[in-house]
């Protein structure tokens, strides 16, 4: 499979997943106990996440994250 077509298929799957979100049932403020849990955060342990990103960033040709990027290092 060509890389472009594989990537395109993934885009489609992700787009469908997102559109599916439009059908979400409204969640009342008092029903958010599970969503408020520590392990439901985007980065539950930011310290660990920073280190993970650092080691992947230094080995890989591409990067990107949701959030403001930090400074570079001589590792890449």
């Amino acid at each position: 499979m060509r890389p472009e077509s594989r990537a395109r298929r993934l885009w489609l799957v992700l787009a469908a997943a997102l559109l599916g979100g439009c059908a979400a049932t409204p969640v009342a403020p008092w029903e958010r106990g599970r969503l408020a849990r520590w392990d439901m955060g985007w980065d539950p342990d930011p310290l660990q996440a920073a280190m993970d990103r650092h080691s992947h960033f230094s080995k890989e040709g591409t990067s990107g994250e949701i959030g403001a990027a930090g400074g570079g290092c001589g590792c890449n």
């Binding site: 997943a17 997102l18 979400a24 969640v27 029903e31 969503l35 439901m40 985007w42 949701i66 959030g67």
Partner: peptide, 21 residues
């Protein structure tokens, strides 16, 4: 970057974002 996050249900959240560098 720009992102949107959406509460899908009592149990699920999704976030989609685009970063330009």
């Amino acid at each position: 970057f720009g992102s949107l996050s959406l509460v899908l249900s009592k149990y699920a959240v999704v976030e989609s974002g685009l970063q330009l560098t």
